[in-house]
């Protein structure tokens, strides 16, 4: 057997050159993306944090170092936070329950279900502002508002929907539920479809009622997706802006002024509160992280991975 020949100096050099050339090309390929991401995402976040430590405005964000004042939030911050929590709570319950129920109802593969899937998904695709406008129109408290007209026809009294501070938040949640149920239902459905029918047959033979099977078998088996829904709906609810601004603008009064609107107000609508807005933004981010960490820490234990 001939021995393996070792490379000559020249050959090694050539190999190195080829490798380096390959690396250069790879870097060229990722460079634009990395540059954009750093320039428009990473760096601004750091920038935002730094600005939150100062007092200033759009012209000069760094007038005075003021981190303590910025981070000791004003009373209306708590209002915004409470509103956001209210929204999140309602959305979470409504969307999760409805998605699961719809999914259970529609996951078996049939022509009707396939069409239904598509139909329920459609609202997800339109702009938040468009959906907001359409539902504002439907929910109008004026006599020509369709919802109230239908309610009255059924013998129920009119609801003041977006004009009443006790129902405004729920109305917005309702619209966003309509908009997002289709998407979340889709995710749950694909999880349900992956459960082998034999498991259900076996459960039947084991004398399990439909309800028992649902809670003891179906739900645990889709728990990873349910967890995903929990995280996504929560973080999405923190960020809600478009629909609120269109449907109520934060009102009536402060009933629907959510965090994202609060931050926007302080950032651009008022004087010299840029730093404060940034601080509020950072706080919002921290809260989202905290909730996510909490979910991973405590809730994830209950998720059955396979």
């Amino acid at each position: 057997m001939t021995a393996v020949t070792s490379m000559t100096r020249e050959q090694k050099k050539e190999l190195g050159r080829i490798k380096r050339r390959s690396w250069l090309i790879s870097y060229a390929m990722i460079l634009p993306a990395i540059v954009f991401l750093i320039a428009f995402v990473i760096y601004p976040t750091i920038s935002m944090f730094i600005m939150s430590l100062y007092f200033g405005n759009a012209m000069n964000p760094y007038k005075r170092f003021q981190w303590f004042k910025n981070y000791s939030v004003r009373p209306d911050f708590w209002v915004a936070l409470r509103n956001t929590a209210e929204y999140t709570g309602m959305a979470l319950v409504l969307v999760m329950v409805l998605s699961i129920l719809f999914a259970q109802w529609m996951y078996k593969s049939r022509k009707l279900n396939n069409v239904a899937q598509t139909v329920f998904f459609t609202p997800h695709l339109v702009a938040g502002v468009s959906a907001g406008f359409i539902w504002s129109w439907l929910m109008s408290s004026q006599p020509y508002g369709l919802f109230n007209t239908v309610f009255n026809a059924l013998g129920l009294s009119s609801v003041r929907w977006l004009d009443d501070s006790s129902t405004a938040m729920f109305s917005i949640v309702l619209m966003n539920t309509w908009k997002s149920v289709g998407y979340y239902c889709l995710i749950i459905m694909s999880a349900m479809k992956s459960i082998p029918t034999e498991i259900y047959e076996s459960a039947r033979l084991d004398g399990s009622s439909s309800i028992k099977t649902f809670f003891k078998i179906t739900i645990p088996m889709i728990s990873p997706q349910l967890f995903f829904l929990l995280i996504t709906i929560t973080t999405g609810s923190f960020k809600v802006f478009d629909s609120v601004r269109i449907m109520t603008g934060g009102g009536p009064g402060d009933a629907t002024r959510v965090l994202s609107m609060y931050i926007y107000d302080y950032a651009f609508e008022r004087n010299n509160t840029l730093g404060y807005a940034c601080a509020a933004g950072i706080l919002m981010m921290l809260m989202m992280v905290a909730v996510t960490v909490f979910d991973f820490g405590f809730v994830e234990k209950k998720v059955h991975y396979q």
């Binding site: 498991i199 076996s202 003891k216």
Partner: peptide
């Protein structure tokens, strides 16, 4: 009682 081809064991229990 039935034993299925793919056993149909409940994976979360």
């Amino acid at each position: 009682a039935m034993v299925f081809q793919n056993y149909a064991i409940y994976p979360t229990m």
